[in-house]
Nucleic acid binder design. Sequence first.
DNA 1: GGGACCTGATTACACGTGTAATCGACAGGG
DNA 2: CCCTGTCGATTACACGTGTAATCAGGTCCC
Lengths: 121, 121
Amino acid sequence: MERIAEGEYAVMEVLWDEAPLTAADVAARVPEDRGWSLATVKTMLSRLLAKGVLTHEEEGRRYLYRPAIRREDYVAEESGRLIDRMFGGRVTPLVAQLAARDKLTPADIAEIEALLKALKS
Amino acid sequence: MERIAEGEYAVMEVLWDEAPLTAADVAARVPEDRGWSLATVKTMLSRLLAKGVLTHEEEGRRYLYRPAIRREDYVAEESGRLIDRMFGGRVTPLVAQLAARDKLTPADIAEIEALLKALKS
DNA sequence: GGGACCTGATTACACGTGTAATCGACAGGG
DNA sequence: CCCTGTCGATTACACGTGTAATCAGGTCCC
């Protein structure tokens, strides 16, 4: 699966959230703070099409875009990449790292524990 | 803190492992499969210096390079970035994601549980 | 039916990155 | 003292990415 650049990812998120959409619709839904012009969004869409992570079907004179890959799949792959790169493929150090950085609230801890318990059964 | 590119990261790893080192030493320690020439490693070192994540001191006519940032700090930041981007800043979905992808072995689960228990006390 | 408007396609351009080659300076061996 | 090797510095160049502008073609209003 092709890598998706940071900016492109923002476009994918829009389409994962709601699809299919026209280019204009996507542009309208991209987070305000990106400050992107419609032209920029169109460039992103073309590149994502070229990467094969989007498909399009013609609707009259326009295209309707929709994701060609599942969000969970991409996220899993990208997470795996980071883990490989920074933690030698081991997940525990990542959790440890997050814990040490106070990124885990007590609620997080409880939630993860519940999750793990469910996994074991 | 400046971003470190993927290739540059490989150089940082060498220096996090052992420092200070000369450019030639770093080149010798970079993983074989990168297939980098000494020139390439020197470019990386310059760029890392420019980014302020390395320091150098002169040793005769050469430099001795050493990290200017701690590995844990960088890793924490980079992990945080991924989590923000893909999981909206919440850690639990990341763990859930990894679990769902069978990235967690029973040993991992036990280890994380122990870790969390320690955190609570 | 002629201009305004909207579409995707094509082109543009600067910056980061991967991957070096080359250069000017100097050190050390003969 | 000169040659050869070695250093960091400078330059090179292609590709991905962020961020568009422009263009060619069709639609729709007047």
